[in-house]
Design a binder for these strands. Structure first.
Lengths: 220, 220
DNA sequence: GGGAGGCGTCAAGACCACGTCAGAATCGGC
DNA sequence: GCCGATTCTGACGTGGTCTTGACGCCTCCC
C-alpha cells in the first residue's frame, strides 16, 4: 500500500486488516520499491501522486523483477495518465474518490487472477522426489524433506518452470530481490544444498541441472 | 465483443480492427457464450446491459470453462454492480461513457497478463533438429544438445529471424556487444561449432547457411 | 595464372564460472 | 538474553568456455 496521504493509508489499512489481509505501507516511491523487494507482497496498491518519484517509474521499477499485480490509485481522471500507467505495467486503475467496496472487489479480482496463473499442477514428480507446490512440501522416498525458506523459494521457481531454463538473474531477483541480481555465488551455495537434500548423487545432478553461464533447469 | 448497442459495437470494431485485432461480435448473452466457445477469443469485452440474460450470468457461463480475460462495459456507475461483476469473475470494469484510448490500454493490460500466464513456448523445427526458444533447449534426434551461452545466443537470433538474412554486424553486436562489430572471425568459429553440433553434414550446412560477405541465414 | 579476401578448421592458452567446504554473521524462538 | 537454525561470505581446485593465432581452401578479380 503506497500513498503519501496518511488518512487514506489509515482507512485502507483498517479495512484491509479487518478482512484478513496483512498490510505493508510506504509513503513514497523509494520506500515502496524497498518494501516490495523485502516484503514480497501479493498485490501492490499504488498512489500515483508520490512526493519523490513519478508513479510510472515505480511501476517500471517493480516490473523489472516481479509480475505482482499493481492497482493504481489516482486523483487524476485524465485518460492519458491511465494509459501511461497501464502501459507501464499496471493491472488496474482506480480514480479517487473511490468506493472502498469497489477497491476491495478489484483487489479480489487481481489476487484471484494471479492465483489462477500460479495454480497449474500443484504437484511435480521426478524419479527421485516429489514437490507439492500447493502444500509447500517435498517428499523423498515417502518421507518429508525439510527445506529452509530460501531453499524452498529456489526450488519453487525451478519447479514452476520445469523443463525450462531459468536465468540466474531471474532466480536471484525473485528469491533475494532485485538488488541481488549479480550475486551468483548465492545460487551455487543453495543449489548445492538442494542437491545434497534431493539428488541421489549430489555431485552428478539429474534434476537440478546447471547450464553454465546461463542459469539452471529443473528436469523431471 | 458483446454489446446490444450497434453504434458502440461499430466504433469498437473499427478501432480494434485498425490496431490489428481480429474482432468477433455478439449482441446478446446467449450468442456471446456460443461465440466464445467457438471462437476461443483472447479477450472478452462484455456489456452488462444485455437484452436476454443478466451480465453476471454471462460471466459465470464463461468462467465455467475458461479463464479468458473479461472486461466489463457498463453504464451503471453503482458500486454494487461493479463488485458483483468483479466477484463473478470479471477482470476489469469500465463505465460508459469511456475513452477509447483508456479501453485500449486496459485491453493491452489484460492481454499482456494472460500472455505472461501462458508463457507461450516458441518452437522452431527443422528436418534435423528442434529449437525451443522459451525453454532454451535444442533437441537432435530426441536427445538434448548442450550449447554454450555464446552458441545459444547466436542460434537464438538466427532462429528468431528464420528465413531472413542476418547481417554479420547485427550478430556480433547482439551477441558480443557493439565494440565487436568487426570481429567476423568469431562468427566463423562459432558457426562451425553450431554446425558440428546440429548439422547432419557440418561441412555442407543445410540450415545454418553462409551468405558470403553479407551474413548468415537460418533455413528450415 | 596469380593474388587477395573471405571462409572453415583446428588447437592451445587464458580466463571465467562452477562446486565445495567451512567459518562467521545474522535471524528467530523461547 | 541465549541457543539453534539459517544465511552470508571467503578461499580454493577444477572443468568448461572464450579468445586468439596459424593454416588451407575456395571464389572472384586482376
Amino acid at each position: 500500500m503506497v500513498d503519501d496521504e496518511p488518512q487514506i493509508v489509515r482507512a485502507l489499512r483498517i479495512n484491509l486488516s479487518a478482512r484478513g489481509y496483512a498490510v505493508l505501507t510506504a509513503h513514497d516511491g523509494t520506500a515502496a520499491l524497498k518494501a516490495a523487494a523485502e516484503g514480497k507482497p501479493d498485490v501492490v496498491v499504488l498512489d500515483l501522486g508520490l512526493p519523490d518519484v513519478d508513479g510510472t517509474e515505480v511501476i517500471a521499477g517493480l516490473r523489472g523483477w516481479t509480475s505482482v499485480p499493481i492497482i493504481v490509485l489516482s486523483a487524476r481522471t485524465d485518460s492519458t495518465d491511465k494509459v501511461e500507467a497501464l502501459d507501464a505495467g499496471a493491472d488496474d486503475y482506480v480514480t479517487k474518490p473511490f468506493g472502498m467496496d469497489e477497491l476491495l472487489a478489484r483487489l479480489r479480482a487481481a489476487v484471484r487472477r494471479s492465483a489462477v496463473a500460479e495454480g497449474e499442477d500443484a504437484v511435480v514428480q521426478t524419479a527421485s522426489f516429489t514437490v507439492d507446490l500447493a502444500a509447500k512440501k517435498v517428499l523423498r522416498d515417502g518421507v518429508e524433506v525439510h527445506l529452509t525458506p530460501t531453499e524452498w523459494g529456489l526450488l519453487e521457481i525451478l519447479a514452476r518452470n520445469r523443463g525450462r531454463l531459468v536465468a540466474q538473474r531471474q532466480l536471484l531477483q525473485e528469491v533475494w530481490g532485485p538488488q541481488y541480481a549479480k550475486e551468483t555465488h548465492y545460487l551455487r551455495v543453495y543449489l548445492a544444498q538442494l542437491r545434497r537434500k534431493l539428488e541421489p548423487e549430489p555431485s552428478h545432478p539429474r534434476h537440478l541441472v546447471t547450464e553454465p553461464g546461463m542459469g539452471y533447469r529443473f528436469e523431471l
